[in-house]
Simulated assay, not measured.
Amino acid sequence: MTMLIFAAILGALLGMTVRPPLLAVAISLAVSGGLHATIAWVGRLAETNPAQRVLAMRIDAMIGNDLHAIWPVLAAAGVGSIASAVMWSLANKQPTDGYWFRPDRRVVLMDQVEENDRHSAAEQRFRDILGR
């Protein structure tokens, strides 16, 4: 339960701050999954030492005792980051045309190109060479 809350809060924070939002989802999944795996590994190490049985039992209660306990943590991180990113964009009335992926730079820059004689002469030479 503690890991679920942590993963959801982490996902929400990353969803609000990191752009593009797919990067926020990837980062939150990687950090939540890595932290879960690290805590599980520390729990397995604590089980081998008789003096640390209490720590092993508390880690086991916190994250679960099998490998499949990581899926709810990853789901909480992903849903938290996606929901936060969508709500942030709706609150700021941000256009969602290039929201999940960045727009292609070439498309944006083509609108800023100014026509001049050199470009049109070079374009005409290419058309003559290609026979179009």
Rank of each mutant, 00 (worst) to 15 (best):
Gly80Cys: 04
Thr38His: 10
Ala121Trp: 05
Leu29Thr: 04
Arg53Lys: 15
Thr2His: 15
Asp60Glu: 13
Ala83Asp: 03
Ala76Gln: 08
Arg102Thr: 15
Val73Phe: 07
Val54Trp: 04
Asn92Ser: 15
Gly43Pro: 14
Met87Ala: 11
Trp71Thr: 07
Ile82Lys: 05
Leu90Arg: 08
Asn92Tyr: 09
Ala40Ser: 09
Asp60Ala: 08
Gln94Trp: 15
Ile82Asp: 07
Pro95Val: 06
Ile70Trp: 06
Leu55Ser: 08
Glu123Trp: 00
Asp104Pro: 09
Pro103Cys: 01
Val18Met: 03
Ala12Tyr: 03
Trp88Ala: 10
Phe126Gly: 02
Asn65Leu: 00
Trp71Leu: 06
Arg106Ser: 05
Gly34Ser: 08
Ser32Lys: 00
Leu14Gln: 03
Thr38Glu: 04
Ser28Arg: 02
Leu14Asn: 03
Met3Arg: 03
Gly78Asn: 04
Ala30Ile: 11
Trp71Lys: 06
Asn116Tyr: 00
Arg118Gly: 00
Ala121Asp: 01
Val31Gly: 07
Val107Ala: 14
Asp60Val: 00
Arg118Gln: 02
Leu10Gly: 13
Val42Asp: 05
Val108Thr: 15
Ser28Ile: 00
Ala30Glu: 04
Phe126His: 02
Ala56Pro: 10
Ile39Val: 15
Pro103Val: 03
Val31Ile: 15
Ala12Trp: 02
His36Ala: 11
Arg58Gln: 12
Asp117Phe: 01
Arg19Leu: 02
Thr96Val: 09
Ala46Asp: 12
Leu35Val: 14
Leu22Trp: 09
Leu29Val: 13
Ser32Ala: 14
Asp97Ala: 14
Pro72Asp: 09
Arg44Gly: 02
Ile5Phe: 14
Asn65Glu: 05
Gly43Glu: 05
Val25Ser: 06
Asp104Met: 12
Leu10Ala: 11
Trp100Thr: 03
Thr38Leu: 15
Arg19Glu: 08
Arg53Tyr: 09
Phe101His: 09
